[in-house]
Write a protein that binds this DNA or RNA. Structure first.
Length: 423
DNA sequence: TCTGGGGTCCTAGGACCC
DNA sequence: TCTGGGGTCCTAGGACCC
């Protein structure tokens, strides 16, 4: 079998680019996108990058943004999710196989492609033309090298036109030597410290390091990274997304909450959302974890955090049962006298529906519950999330997140469609 | 006033069993 | 002087990713 070849297609400043798709007037205005609750900066357009750090708290950079005429947006995940689907569909039509890796990037199978550079350029051009989103393409024999090639394609975009193929060993080594080790996929802050102390400073140094030593000193993960940098493929293309092993819904409140009642509403809301995700992948869950905590950053605030795992009587996807369990858990962890900032509901011990259970006489979910849930989901799929919901879940919660700078849902809400006028 | 949300994988250590 | 050994399962925590 021939050696594999991968392409990594990555959208440039994805969230910021999405905001620009329906606002061509902002093509030359620098943009940042904020996290939920308008907390911190999570995306920056290229022309905003020199002035704002990634992850900077919004309230700290507010003035800098104003000075440089940088426009801030609250995050609009229904817009980004919808545009992402369009981008992926377009790429999928051009390559033999695709693994959607995240909302803004995908690995493509480039096996047997004659003119890889040409296909890379075609992908960029087609995605840009049909969705308005700019991308860069990195091509190499392993996923880790394709990531690295993409990084290089972005960094020297002007020079190489956004496509970088490093299948050629000479080119590959040149890029490896030019990239710092902390830019390598799989090397985070801690690992960077360790490696730097060992004298491993560039991607090239890591590729040359002894694999066995890396495994003993750190883990098999780092060893694989080093092997991949050398051109030995250790990570395969995974086209079918595996079912999640845990599902989480958590969110900070718009402001601190002291009473339990609004927190009950939040927990019911998050549990309900988590159940939707659970049913969407056809799983059942046996355990629910609920956790609440106060603010963790402000040194003047008293800190408190507590979570609990509740076992359900049988594996279920029934929102009503899971909300009930989550609320019982909340009662157990709630302590009077704290200013709570966030709650979290996590579904654990997931299994696929109909999966063999070792206890023949174990209780199972009643058929009636399945029917109720499937009606609930089909109504909400057709008419929009929240059309039908448990009474515990408020429509516009008083504690809901802060989103003061949100753009319209241009592509997913009839009442927010773009209007065009003919002259 | 004020710092996101949702995941995965690996490892170490404790409990328990024979 | 000097406390078996080997295996499994579960959990917590660390590190990383986008």
């Amino acid at each position: 079998m021939a050696d594999p070849v991968f392409a990594l297609i990555d959208c440039n400043s994805f969230y910021a680019s999405c905001e620009r798709v329906f606002r061509p007037d902002l093509a030359r205005t620098p943009i940042v996108v904020l996290s939920n609750n308008d907390g911190c900066v999570i995306a920056r357009s290229a022309d905003a990058k020199p002035f704002v750090k990634m992850g900077a708290p919004y309230h700290q950079v507010h003035e800098v943004l104003r000075q440089h005429g940088i426009l801030a947006f609250s995050s609009n995940y229904s817009l980004y999710g919808d545009i992402s689907e369009r981008v992926m569909t377009v790429i999928e039509s051009l390559v033999p196989g695709l693994e959607v890796y995240s909302i803004d990037e995908a690995f493509a199978d480039m096996n047997g492609i004659q003119d890889r550079d040409q296909l890379g350029r075609q992908i960029r051009a087609t995605v840009l033309k049909t969705t308005g989103i700019p991308t860069c393409v990195g091509i190499a024999q392993t996923k880790t090298l394709a990531k690295l090639a993409n990084h290089a394609a972005k960094r020297w975009q002007k020079h190489y036109g956004g496509v970088m193929d490093i299948c050629d060993p000479e080119r590959r080594d040149k890029v490896l030597k030019a990239v710092k080790v902390n830019e390598v996929w799989g090397v985070g802050r801690r690992m960077n410290e360790h490696l730097t102390n060992m004298g491993i400073k560039t991607a090239w140094d890591l590729a040359q390091a002894d694999a066995w030593t890396l495994r003993q000193k750190f883990s098999i993960v780092v060893e694989k990274t080093a092997r991949e940098l050398r051109g030995v493929s250790c990570l395969a293309l995974e086209e079918a997304a595996a079912a999640k092993q845990e599902i989480c819904s958590s969110r900070s409140f718009g402001h601190r909450l002291k009473d339990i009642e609004p927190i009950r509403e939040a927990v019911a809301t998050y549990a309900s959302r988590a159940c939707e995700k659970l049913r969407a992948q056809g799983s059942l869950c046996k355990k629910v974890r609920v956790a609440i905590r106060t603010g963790m950053f402000n040194p003047t605030e008293a800190k408190f955090a507590k979570g609990i795992v509740c076992e359900l009587p049988y594996p279920t996807d029934d929102t009503r049962l899971i909300i009930r369990a989550a609320l019982q858990g909340l009662e157990a962890v709630f302590r009077e006298g704290h200013a709570y900032a966030k709650a979290e509901v996590m579904l654990l011990d997931l299994r696929q529906q109909g999966e063999f259970t070792d206890d023949l006489f174990a209780e199972t979910q009643p058929v009636a519950a399945e029917k109720v849930m499937s009606v609930l989901d089909s109504i909400n799929n057709r008419w929009g999330r929240g059309t039908m919901r448990p009474a515990r879940v408020p429509v516009t919660p008083e504690w809901g997140m802060k989103q003061e700078l949100k753009s319209p849902n241009y592509t997913t809400r009839w009442d927010q469609l773009w209007t065009a006028r003919c002259k």
